[in-house]
């Protein structure tokens, strides 16, 4: 993203420089496939783990209903 404006309303120029695919394996595991060769950052597939997670009823993931209940 280039040619933008700090704290302004000007729409910046956008350019697709790569791609990434997130695949959720579980509450605590995501697979990230990225291809940023256009930036010289290569491509790879890595596994992501949570730094920390809050558990609800013993589970790391909160279901949508529970989150809505908490919000309300």
């Amino acid at each position: 993203m280039t040619n933008g404006e700090f704290l302004g309303s000007k729409v910046a120029d956008r350019e697709v420089v790569g791609s990434a695919t997130l695949t959720a394996e579980s509450c605590n595991e995501i697979t990230l496939e990225f291809d940023l060769q256009g930036l010289g950052l290569g491509s790879d597939t890595v596994t992501l783990n949570r730094i920390f997670s809050l558990e609800t009823a013993g589970y790391a993931c909160r279901d949508q209903t529970a989150r809505l209940d908490a919000k309300n």
Partner: peptide, 28 residues
């Protein structure tokens, strides 16, 4: 077993580290 169809939803938002590279990660 791996879930048949695991949703990518807001519940997965948070701080994540790259396995084997603990000094790097992503805020998702």
């Amino acid at each position: 077993q791996k879930p048949v169809n695991f949703p990518l939803t807001g519940r997965l938002s948070g701080n994540w580290v790259v396995e084997g590279v603990p000094d790097q990660g992503f805020l998702i």
